[in-house]
Simulated assay, not measured.
Amino acid sequence: MSRLRVHRESHLVQRIGWLRAAVLGANDGIVSTASLIVGVAAAEASRNDVLVAGAAGLVAGAMSMAAGEYVSVSSQSDTEKADLAREREELSDYAELEREELAQIYVERGVDLELAREVALQLMAKDALTAHARDELGISAIASARPVQAALTSAVTFAAGAALPLLIGGIAPRDAIIPIVSAASLGCLALLGAIGAKAGGAGVLRAAIRVTFWGALALALTAGVGKIFGMAV
């Protein structure tokens, strides 16, 4: 008798933890630093002032992204741990009721009641907490919160994204910093949007247009503000 071969699949949802933080970090790095450079340049500041502002924005933004992601994802992690602790107590005190509750979940998904009870019995015999975490609470290893991973990913990708407009601002002629940095940043945003969409299995064109639109809006607004303050000074 031939053995059945295990068919292993790699699903896009497995990337969601790091992909979201990476795309968000890189987008923010490009948009915020490019906008800062364009805004300061529009205020008729010197090249040195423009670069100092951009470098400060890179460091501050990377740290802000890391702290924000860590706090946000830590809150999610704390909630998951609290739910798991409560579920562990309920499994200890009300094992039969919890098994029936799990069976009813499977019934609602279309499984016959007797079969659902047998499935619940076998799953709980193997790992009751994991079964309830996955099917009752919706907590799985793939989607579970990872604060350190999210913080590091956001900080590194923000810095990488911010380095691009900063580098271009440093080599572009002073009189052409605004158009060159703007064009290069929008092009990179479109590319990043397309790459993120491709990695996540979404529509490439729509993602590229979406991120480019918001990037152009941010650049236009900060350039306008810089121009107004530059004239006032």
Rank of each mutant, 00 (worst) to 15 (best):
L189S: 04
V13Y: 11
G138N: 08
M65K: 04
L192N: 06
A208T: 10
I168V: 15
S144G: 12
P147F: 04
G54W: 07
D28N: 10
Y70C: 01
I195P: 10
L221W: 09
P147V: 02
G200I: 09
S182Y: 02
L205K: 09
S46N: 02
V50C: 02
V6E: 14
A62S: 15
E100L: 14
Q149D: 01
A43V: 09
S140W: 09
E87C: 02
Q76V: 10
A26D: 03
R109T: 00
A22P: 06
A53Q: 09
A199C: 06
V119A: 14
R8C: 00
I105S: 11
E89H: 12
S10C: 00
L192F: 02
T212G: 02
R15Y: 12
L4V: 14
W18M: 08
L91S: 12
C188L: 15
A42R: 11
Y94R: 15
L102H: 05
T33N: 09
R109F: 00
L84W: 04
E87P: 01
G68K: 13
R88M: 08
V111F: 07
S154W: 01
I228L: 15
S46H: 00
K227N: 13
S75I: 15
A82H: 10
A202M: 14
A150T: 07
Q76Y: 02
E101I: 00
L186W: 06
S64G: 15
A150N: 14
E44I: 00
M124Y: 12
M63F: 15
V111R: 08
E101D: 11
P173G: 12
L219H: 06
A41F: 11
A183R: 02
V31D: 07
V38N: 05
S35L: 04
I180G: 07
D112T: 08
G170D: 01
E80F: 03
R8P: 00
A220R: 04
P179H: 05
A218T: 07
P179Q: 05
G187N: 04
S144I: 08
A85Y: 03
L152G: 10
A184I: 12
T222K: 06
R117Y: 05
V31E: 03
L205I: 12
E80I: 00
E90W: 03
